[in-house]
Amino acid sequence: MTSLEEVRRRVEMDAESRGYKLNPDSYFLNDLLEGLRTNEERYGYPSCPCRYATGIFDLDKDIICPCDYRDIDVEEFGACYCGLFVSKEVYEGKKKLQPVPERRPSKLIERALSGRTTKEPAHEVKKEERVMEAIDGMKFWYCKQCGYVAFREEPPYICPICKAKREAFAEIYLSVFAKG
């Protein structure tokens, strides 16, 4: 079982390495950390406490903390969707923390809520099929600035390595040759 302190240490380290702060409201922060811990126990990974997760990794991977939307949301709104990571301005009280609009595409939210609600009995084969569906449509994207590669349906909003904008990403086309 992951302890609350472990969860806290992990996000603290991540915030520090990225130049972010954690939410200055200690009660609110505690609730978020508890939520992360609950999700980690429930699903095996710390998905966003403020979003509905399915427990199927491929349907949830974009909302595993730190989520795919964090960097751009902190840049634009001063906080990520759940409010765990905040900018220096929000941390110092120079900017008020407001609910951050959901950036996760609605088709992914829809898919997540359907993924778990299929009326047919959820046996292993079905789960596999759903995972394959989720992988379908995924592409390789590379950052033309630093070379970072992401395997996602859409390119990242901001390169997590060099902070280049989405426009810096280009798709990698793969082809396989068989010889002999």
Binding site: L113, S114, T117, A122
Partner: peptide
């Protein structure tokens, strides 16, 4: 997040029918 599959389906349909996003 604590609902059964059947109830989750109902909630999803209910929220969607109101034309609002599936957010909490």
């Amino acid at each position: 997040d604590l609902l059964s599959k059947e109830d989750l389906e109902k909630v999803k349909a209910e929220i969607t029918s109101r034309g609002v996003p599936l957010q909490f």
